[in-house]
């Protein structure tokens, strides 16, 4: 008898456990805004994409969730391509993108969801060229960058840039790059090498905007590129000129707004179809003076006419 009782409980236990598992997995994806903090809000705007923009998007989301009575915003990163892929699959409301959406992606989104992604330029980003803080180099031309980063590039040593780097005894330039699918990688490649030349192999392809700065900070021989907003006190940003005879411009707000700094790009947000309701209110707020103030605060460049 006792044995039967135990068995019975065992079976009930397993059944309950199963039911719980099914319940959890079945409910959570559809639980819109079910998190504790958002319990009162009716609408959750899902926002995903560019790694460059993730801090910015997070700051927008936090401020907006604080102000808005009706909506909260969830942000995740992963890269421009990831955001667009999620938009194509219809799992996010807004995709962040540090490059323009590709025609193939537009077509795919339309085919999959029946809606055409709408583009919003929400700010600008200057790609800064970072070196170690003790590197004596202050400025560089696009040509030199192309020879450092490009396939079969001719510049591999710091001495070729007419400097002696005391903390880099090997004199070797360690190229820090990004993984080959990031929006930053695409933009930097096009700005330096155009559409026909590739980056040389053997660069260290790191997996985030922040990692690039982190590694340059700790590596005397390194050169790297990342968003201007990721600068720290322990790295140096180089002034850049388009060609040897031209003047050099530092990556800062004025130079980007005046369009004199050569490697700056717009930051995009894409909504699925013409935005409506809460998504439209959110995008309007981002483009407003208040939203653009946050852009400037995070080291990016706000839109001019707001």
């Amino acid at each position: 008898m006792e044995k039967k009782g135990l068995m019975g409980y065992f079976v009930i236990g397993i059944t309950v456990a199963f039911a719980c598992c099914l319940g959890i997995s079945g409910c959570s994806p559809s639980g819109d805004g079910g998190g504790t903090g958002n319990a009162r809000k009716q609408f959750t705007i899902k926002n995903k994409g560019s790694d460059t923009m993730v801090n910015l998007a997070q700051a927008w989301a936090e401020t907006y969730t604080g102000i808005s009575q009706t909506a909260s915003v969830e942000v995740s990163g992963g890269g421009s391509g990831t955001g667009v892929a999620a938009l194509i699959n219809g799992t996010v409301d807004i995709a962040n993108c540090s490059r323009q959406i590709k025609p193939t992606e537009l077509a795919q989104a339309e085919k999959n969801t029946g809606k055409v992604p709408q583009e919003f330029i929400v700010g600008h980003d200057a790609l800064a060229v970072y070196v170690h803080e003790h590197n004596p180099l202050d400025r560089i031309t696009i040509n030199e960058l192309a020879e450092i980063y490009g396939e079969n590039g001719k510049i591999t040593k710091w001495s070729q840039l007419r400097i002696t780097h005391p903390e880099c005894q090997s004199d070797k330039i360690i190229r820090i790059s990004r993984q080959s699918n990031s929006g930053t990688y695409f933009y930097f490649r096009e700005a330096l090498l155009g559409k026909t030349r590739d980056f040389g192999l053997g660069s260290l392809d790191l997996h985030g905007s922040k990692d690039v700065v982190e590694v340059v900070e700790r590596t005397p021989c390194a050169i790297g590129y990342s968003g201007m907003g990721y600068a720290t006190e322990h790295v140096k940003m180089l002034a850049v000129a388009t060609a040897p005879g031209e003047s050099y411009y530092a990556p800062n707000l004025e130079n980007v707004l005046a369009k004199t700094y050569p490697i700056a790009r717009p930051l995009y947000m894409y909504s699925l179809g013409e935005p409506t309701g809460e998504v439209k209110v959110y995008l309007d707020w981002i483009l407003s003076a208040e939203g653009q103030k946050i852009v400037e605060k995070l080291g990016f460049v706000p839109l001019v006419n707001n």
Partner: peptide, 30 residues
């Protein structure tokens, strides 16, 4: 270092098969 580079010694930077999938799969179009 995640760098496409044929390793020549313990101090050379390199990349593995798994890391390539992890870094790139998230961002390719299906």
């Amino acid at each position: 270092g995640h760098s496409v580079n044929i390793p020549t010694g313990p101090l050379s930077w390199m990349r593995t098969l798994t890391a390539t999938i992890a870094a790139e799969l998230g961002e390719v179009a299906r």
